[in-house]
Structures are given as structure tokens and as C-alpha cells.
């Protein structure tokens, strides 16, 4: 299996006024293609920062982040935005759906950046909703959906552009046990049937157990366990 994500000697330092805070310290991590990795660790250990670097929404202070063979640490903000639009799908803890858009419009949103026609965009969005089992709720607005359903719409939005990598920041953190189980099953399906590489941050050991590999961070350093 080739490497889908390669984090090489990455250091991330945040500046708070004159104070510098090293969040990641020369961290290296390889995620093979089709892998399902869970990143665990206490609050402030740097797991979300690492996830943000892999998703291309933040850039390292030093080191390289290679995703799908491309070092995204050297891309400009505009290039990163373009890269994110087709290469990575992001799943948030609080779903972050746009409340004024229906489920299908939310899923269709990333496709506005493509050259697809309106009809093609709608078809793809409906297909993504079918994959997450919500085709019958396509016209519902987020306020009309349960937390689990909202998260499934958010997952549909993440996969609609068919990205190579899915990153999830505590995707079950705001859900009850039953909904969380449904979401985890869905992520397993995406990993096993659709061969998506998934990097998931979680505090929940049960969620982490569903991943193939668990990696633990502490004070910005990966722990060997």
C-alpha cells in the first residue's frame, strides 16, 4: 500500500503576543492509502492541529505535509483552498451545516467550485445523500434533522467531491451512543467499500476502536504504544 499522508518532521508553533507555544514538535506520521487512523490524546496535545495540517487548513512552521504525493506545506493560501476543494473532505464535531440551505443544497455546496452543470451537481449531491442513507431527507433543512442525520449530511458533503482523504474532528463528540454508532458504521463503510483514507481525531475509545490504527499524541509528540 502506498502512503497517502506523510507528515515529515513537522513543527507547529503558535505565537500569542511575545510568547511562543510549540504545539507539534518534529512530528512524523505516515498514513497508508485506504487506512483508517484514529488520533487520540488529551486536550492540548496537538491532535486537532495535526488534523488541520493534514486537511490543509493550516500550515506547519517547519517540515513537510505530503498528501496524495503533493507537499501542501508549500502551497499558497489560494492554492490550498483549491486543493482542499477536491482532495480532502472535512467532518466537523458540530456538523456545521449551513442553516439556510436544505440537506441537498448543503451537500451540493462544494460542487459549486467545480465546472459541473446545475443538474450534474444536484445528481451528485443526491447520490452522496443516498450513500449516507438520507436520500429521502434531501429537502429537509438542518433544523428539521436530528444530530445524527445532520452529521450524515455533513459526511455526504465531505464525500461529494470524491476526495482521497477524509479528516474527521471528533465526529461523534456531539452525538448520543446510537447515532454515534451509526456514524462510525458509515465511516467504516466509506473506508472499506469506498476505499477512503480516514484520519479521525477522537476522545472516545469506542470510536477509536473502529479504526485500524490508533496513534496517541502527548504534548505535540506521537507516543509509541
Amino acid at each position: 500500500m502506498s502512503t497517502m499522508v506523510s507528515v515529515q518532521e513537522v513543527t507547529k508553533v503558535y505565537k500569542r503576543g511575545s510568547e511562543e507555544l510549540k504545539v507539534l514538535d518534529s512530528l512524523s506520521l505516515d498514513v497508508p492509502e485506504g487506512e483508517f487512523v484514529a488520533l487520540m490524546g488529551p486536550s492540548g496535545s496537538g491532535k486537532t492541529t495535526l488534523l488541520n495540517l493534514i486537511a490543509g487548513i493550516d500550515q506547519p512552521t517547519s517540515g513537510a505535509v505530503v498528501v496524495g504525493g503533493r507537499n501542501i506545506a508549500v502551497l499558497s493560501e489560494g492554492e490550498l483552498a483549491k486543493w482542499r476543494s477536491h482532495s480532502v473532505g472535512f467532518i466537523f464535531q458540530f456538523y456545521n451545516l449551513i442553516p439556510v440551505l436544505s440537506a441537498v443544497e448543503n451537500v451540493e455546496l462544494p460542487l459549486l467550485l467545480t465546472k459541473l452543470s446545475k443538474k450534474e451537481r444536484r445528481e451528485r449531491a443526491l447520490t452522496a445523500l443516498k450513500v449516507v442513507g438520507l436520500a429521502d431527507r434531501s429537502s429537509h433543512y438542518p433544523r428539521q434533522l436530528s444530530g445524527g442525520q445532520e452529521q450524515r449530511v455533513a459526511i455526504a458533503r465531505a464525500i461529494v467531491t470524491d476526495p482521497q482523504v477524509l479528516v474527521a474532528d471528533e465526529p461523534t463528540g456531539d452525538l448520543d451512543a446510537k447515532s454515534a454508532e451509526e456514524i462510525l458504521k458509515l465511516m467504516e463503510t466509506l473506508n472499506q467499500e469506498f476505499k477512503k483514507t480516514i484520519v479521525m481525531v477522537t476522545h472516545d475509545p469506542r470510536a477509536a476502536d473502529r479504526a485500524h490504527v490508533q496513534r496517541h499524541l502527548e504534548k505535540g509528540v506521537l507516543q509509541l504504544r
Partner: peptide, 16 residues
């Protein structure tokens, strides 16, 4: 603000 963050995460540029 959150939606702006989400849009940018989805790949919409700052100019968008």
C-alpha cells in the same frame, strides 16, 4: 463566522 470558516474549509477562497 462559523459558516465563513466552513466555506473556506470546503475550498472556497477568501475572495469567494
Amino acid at each position: 463566522r462559523t459558516e465563513i470558516g466552513v466555506l473556506k474549509t470546503l475550498g472556497f477562497s477568501s475572495a469567494h
